[in-house]
């Protein structure tokens, strides 16, 4: 089943008076349960592509359909609810809330969904165990290593049982070894829960964990590899 579909998507950014085109008519489709890598050099539009799929940016032209819903047609409120219920985000620089503990960071999306405290506790504890953070659950991000922080971010992204997880350079700020561990973790979660993952990277090792890799250059998908 196709869950993400981009049709002739254009997106540019204003730089002074000029508009710099970033995506120039991208077409792509993601199937449910896939783990897809998007590779390309810096500035090729990887992050922009992910932002459009995640409904945190809107295309200038073309259609972005996620679960058959046209994101451009949704209001800000609807989009926020949609992101909260359907998507999980993992960022290169983790973007955790510094004043919250590992436990509370993972719990936060459930609070947004209005889930009861007891149910939250049950799910967060399970997630902490799944990402291997039970021992440091009461630590704040600045007391955690880079790898631990990204595990928290993964926990936060997956706690709502999203259908689609969008990861932008998830290992970009981690050393090689830790990056591999994080990728193993994501792969496991993909296989176990059948969660769809789309991740942008320019690290071929990271891309090797995915089954399908799309190559982006100058705002277009120029190549596709299926392993």
């Amino acid at each position: 089943m196709i869950i993400v579909s981009l049709e002739q998507v254009h997106k540019g950014y204003k730089l002074g008076k000029a508009t710099v085109p970033v995506l120039k008519g991208v077409n792509l489709q993601l199937a449910e349960g896939e783990m897809v890598g998007i590779m390309g050099p810096s500035g090729s539009g990887k992050t922009t592509l992910l932002n459009l799929m995640g409904g945190i940016d809107l295309p200038d032209r073309g259609k972005v359909l996620v679960y058959n819903r046209d994101l451009a047609a949704m209001g800000d409120r609807q989009l926020a609810t949609f992101r909260s219920e359907t998507l999980g985000f993992i960022f290169q620089s983790f973007n955790l809330i510094p004043v919250l503990t590992a436990y509370e960071n993972i719990e936060y999306p459930l609070v947004l969904q209005g889930i009861t405290k007891k149910e939250r506790w049950r799910r967060v504890e399970a997630m902490l165990a799944a990402v291997g953070l039970t021992a440091v659950k009461n630590h704040r991000p600045d007391e955690l290593s880079g790898g631990q922080r990204q595990r928290v971010a993964i926990g936060r992204a997956l706690i709502t049982r999203p259908k689609l997880v969008i990861a932008d350079e998830p290992t970009g700020n981690l050393d090689h070894q830790t990056g591999k561990v994080i990728m193993e973790l994501m792969k496991q979660l993909n296989e176990r829960a059948k969660t769809t993952f789309v991740l942008a990277t320019h690290d071929p090792v990271v891309a090797s964990y995915t089954k399908r890799v799309l190559y982006l250059r100058d705002g277009l998908v120029v190549r596709e590899e299926v392993q």
Binding site: I56, L87, F89
Partner: peptide, 16 residues
């Protein structure tokens, strides 16, 4: 700023 971006991305409403 970035933290606000992240909060919004993971589903926090403007009102939040």
């Amino acid at each position: 700023t970035r933290e606000i971006g992240a909060l919004r991305a993971i589903g926090t409403q403007k009102n939040g």
